[in-house]
Amino acid sequence: MSRFRINPVKVTFYVIAAIFLILLPYYVSQYTVTTFIRIIYFGFLSLSMGFLIGQGGMISLTQTAFFGLSGYIIGIFGVERGLMFPWPDLMAIGAVAIMAFLFGMIAMGTHRIVFLMITLAFGQVCWAFAAQNTTILRGWSGIRGIRPFVIYGINFNEYQNFYWASLILFALGIFILWRISKSPFGLALNGIRENPRRMAAIGYPVYWIRVVAFLIAAVYAGLGGILAAYNTGIIMPTTIQLSRTIWVLLTVILGGASFFFGPIVGTFVAVWLDVLISGVTERYNLVLGVVFLIIVLFSPTGIIGIFDQMRNDKKFNSIINFFSPKKEKPNS
């Protein structure tokens, strides 16, 4: 018996969603497409934090620093030194990986609240450095004029092209991270989340597994940072300030930290909420806070948790089962 079953309802849903996303620039405004680009780059960041929280039980407040670091590398080497694609981008990912590895070596010996504090401290050091360094990082004003490139005749300054490029990168990123979370490595990370002491006692190098997980997550934050820098054209200290980190943490919990797609759903909702209410009121944080409270109150496992509860609900299940073929029960 094959362990993976194909669920036609799910496949149909994914195909429709993919077609909808690919054709998006043909039937919506530039503003809407740009909003989707925002969802994608914040999605990368949120996925980075959500992977560490959901799979590894590590609440890291450093991810935004990696997001900003890759933006600054793009700014310094792409704009000020004038290097061509793909050099600034590769350097950005390389810098993020090195930084994450070094910092991971320091932080991964700690757990829980100490880990939270040390990652908070590191994030704040990066932010303070960016704000105070005027010679390279240009202080509060940041580095401006970051433009996407023309590669093989495709001009990524056109928002449609940039959107498709981002979408492909995001889909690829999601697929790879999803595979990782189902792999023996992902399972080992889950074990560390549940009980690091037992993991050591059954022979796992707990420390190194955490370091590698941190490295993987940092690269995702870095990819988001590259897209963000190109899309906004500017990188400055406010990009990596603490309120941004908290916002990302909020999107992760809003969507459902224990679900793989939770962070993406959370980002989608939080960004659209921003767009929809910005015409009505400037108190975005207040509205987001209230929405967050209501959702977490009714479903501590976030938005996806609501659907998950529905799936376990008998009445709802009978409707779903009507549309999908009978599932085989695992042999008992």
Binding site: S183, F185, L187, G191, E194, G203
Partner: peptide, 29 residues
């Protein structure tokens, strides 16, 4: 024990411990 994981997952983890076996990233376990 790993309370949020299944019996199968618990025993799989115990059965495939080791210095390097966890660093398999692609094939599903």
């Amino acid at each position: 024990l790993f309370l949020d994981l299944t019996v199968e997952e618990n025993l799989y983890l115990a059965g495939s411990g080791g210095a390097t076996k966890a660093f398999r990233f692609f094939g599903p376990w």
